[in-house]
Design a protein around this nucleic acid. Sequence first.
RNA 1: GCGCCCGUAGCUCAGCCGGAUAGAGCAUCGGAUUCCUAAUCCGGGGGUCGCAGGUUCGAGUCCUGCCGGGCGCGCCA
Length: 577
Amino acid sequence: MNIFNLFEGYVRAELEQCFGAKAASGAITVEPPRDPSHGDLATNAALARARAVGAKPGDLAEALAAGLARLPDVVEVRIAGPGFINLRLADRIWHQVLADVLAAQEDYGRSDIGARAAVNIEFVSANPTGPLHVGHCRGAVYGDALARLLEFTGFAVTREYYVNDAGTQIEQLAHSAYVRYREALGEEISEDVLAGLGYGGNYLKDVGAGLKRRYGDEWAGAASEDWLPVVRGYAIEKMMDDIRADLAALGIAFDQFSSELDLVAAGKVDAVLADFTDRDLVYTGVLAAPKGKTPDDWEPRPQTLFRATRFGDDVDRPLRKSDGSWTYFATDIANHLDKYQRGFRDMINVWGADHGGYVKRMKAAVKAFGDGDAALDVKLCQMVRLFDGGVPAKMSKRTGSFVTLRELVEAVGRDVVRFFMLTRRNDAPLDFDLVKVREQSRDNPVFYVQYAHARICSVKRNLAGGDMPAGPDKDPDLARLTHPDELSLIRMMAAWPRQVEAAAVAHEPHRLAFALYDLAAAFHGLWNKGNEDRSLRFIVDDDPGLTDARLALIEGVRLVIASGLDIFGVTPVEEMR
RNA sequence: GCGCCCGUAGCUCAGCCGGAUAGAGCAUCGGAUUCCUAAUCCGGGGGUCGCAGGUUCGAGUCCUGCCGGGCGCGCCA
């Protein structure tokens, strides 16, 4: 039961009864008021619908309030401000909410707003030219948390990784790997050659050694057109193995890896071009040089262009390089068309902010598919600035001294990485301090939330150690929960399902981090009141009934925290020593 | 020059497809520990929500224009 949805239904019914169907159909909100002193529920229905009804907000509010006051469990109705209606509910409602939480267990907050719709989330998609680094980490965590969140709200999610295994970067990788192969065979490689490698990091030594193990000296003196496909294929395979292992260390597994090379080989890009050509979406033209910043080697030249401007882009975009090969954009269109043909009408891409300039053209291409019935949402993740005790951590990819995702996870732990990466909006920059995130204090939200969960587990342990009978098989009298702080905790639990839904709709899992933090804060506050006032402790020695009720209360808190952490892929710990 | 993102307390950031007196942590000042883990809690001070217009009963939130910062701008991915 989501009481906000429930009461929205009541409000709409009342609108319809008083003012007709037209009045009931528009947008209204039923939500917890920002200021708790206003009541338990607030609706703007009178304000929002006054115009459509042709009445004054005040009159509308009067009529609605009279009707709502007759509802069971509504103990007070007040009209406030310009026409808000504030409702105060009987405690019984909150006891029922808690009972619902306990009945649903970890499924509390689960929703069916997705109605099993297929959603494709493409994220990470890092070139297989080396290990993942911290820059990839945020997108990885964000994408996976979003996937979990959408699954929790009823979507059928596919996690997809687009492997850019074609193109010049990969050629360079293969050439670098081939040098390491010769090195493994005993050849002396000069410093100059090593310095000139596209990918000079030591991680390719393993690839060179692996090539030697598999092929011996078979490719030692071969022509590059002969060894290239072999070395490239082997290097990609190894890099992807490493990437999969890195992601597994973060608790992330993909459902689908799509290969750019395969798309090209299967003729998917040709098919895109043919289809777009048929529909007059492709032409040969000359682009104007960008104003203000003309590349040095600019020269006007005819190109194969996609009419992206028809679908909201600023300029038409090239599909072929001058050597006739596909641009990255062309193959990526094929990638998205492939998703479309696999049935996805709802696609989400998670990219680094440096790809922001690419968003419009990709959205334009997706709009051109089929009947224009596909939607693409691109979420850009801003930079992660890595610090080590307040000092910026040195990150140089060239010298190979950058911090890998693996090193990060091993240094601070999977849970810390995952939770912390979700404590900021995706489009806000994030400072990640290797020292601070391990601090066990209030300003570290990871531990603060974990600690609340651990404390609840601690209470349960203490109870189990004593001879107080309590447990899930009992049917506690929740009506014993009457203290304002207890009811306030339940109100927060009642708000959880709508927060989950809102986060899912907005594709913003970080909102739940703040919700969990707030819930943890309320719990810690109540806990501490027990230090000053023994009657407020969860375990009340001479009152088993009250103890049971309070145990149920904190078990509800625990369940919400546990299910929230589960959406983040973070383990709810039971002990923090 | 153009496009996208951002601008909220001294600092780092929330602000739920517009809603009531803009919140939290850190920092600062003052308190709480015979405690179910004080790894916590309670309280005080601290704001022209970058600026200026506009839409609206109502704008931190939507629109326009400026200012400031980041990212990007034809054969890199």
